[in-house]
């Protein structure tokens, strides 16, 4: 038996504003209202034990207006996007997309400063954006040092044996990070996408 004890801190009154906001602003949120709390998603999750609430309960918390508890939950970060839940959801709710969307919101609104998955995502994004690919050293260094200098060194040293073995096996190279072919074009595409997103959000806020 695997029991997850954590509950959202403190009671509050039901507040529909957050739920409505999620329905309208989060990718896939328009179907979220259909959730009937059956538990298929949480039960199907291969790493359900590594989630404080699991998607099903998180969705109920959204309805109850528990914005802070939702956006600080590790459920949105620990999703591995296996899509088991999406395939099985009897109401065809894009659970994965919604969790991803909530993660974006959490980052944007500053709810996830210490969230390791968020930090890793930033490191990953940095590498992809600048080099068009993930560079193992760059991503890990970015990720480790996002915890601070001392913590960064500590983590780096702890993983040094693995790094050495990877070099030996030819899975990691020394020298400057390789840049993917067309990385500059990719950067331009990303810049355009960011611009569109920004514009759309501004329009959305006006409506």
């Amino acid at each position: 038996m695997r029991t997850i004890a954590a509950a959202p801190a403190g009671s509050r009154t039901y507040d529909l504003n957050f739920a409505r906001w999620v329905y309208q602003n989060v990718d896939g949120g328009d179907r979220l209202s259909l959730c009937m709390q059956c538990g298929m998603c949480s039960g199907s999750c291969p790493i359900g034990t590594a989630m404080d609430h699991g998607p099903r309960k998180l969705f109920m918390m959204i309805r109850a207006g528990m914005k802070e508890a939702v956006l600080t939950s590790d459920t949105i970060w620990n999703c591995t996007q296996c899509y088991n839940c999406v395939v099985r959801c009897p109401r065809q709710i894009p659970v994965t997309n919604i969790l991803q969307g909530l993660a974006t919101v959490a980052v944007r609104e500053g709810y996830a400063p210490e969230q390791p998955t968020a930090k890793f995502a930033k490191a990953f994004w940095f590498s992809v954006k600048h080099f068009g690919r993930t560079d193992e050293r760059l991503v890990t260094a970015f990720f480790y040092f996002s915890f601070g200098l001392v913590e960064g060194i500590k983590r780096g040293l702890a993983n040094l044996p693995i790094a050495l073995r990877m070099i030996k096996a030819g899975r990691m190279h020394l020298g400057a990070p390789h840049r993917a072919k067309g990385a500059a074009d990719l950067r331009a595409i990303i810049a355009k996408a960011e611009e569109i997103e920004k514009r759309e959000r501004a329009q959305g806020a006006q409506q």
Partner: peptide, 18 residues
């Protein structure tokens, strides 16, 4: 008109106010 519900899915009593 505050309704107190023992919310079975959240696992706690939640007041519904307003």
């Amino acid at each position: 008109l505050t309704v107190t519900i023992d919310d079975a899915l959240l696992g706690e009593e939640v007041p519904l106010a307003g």
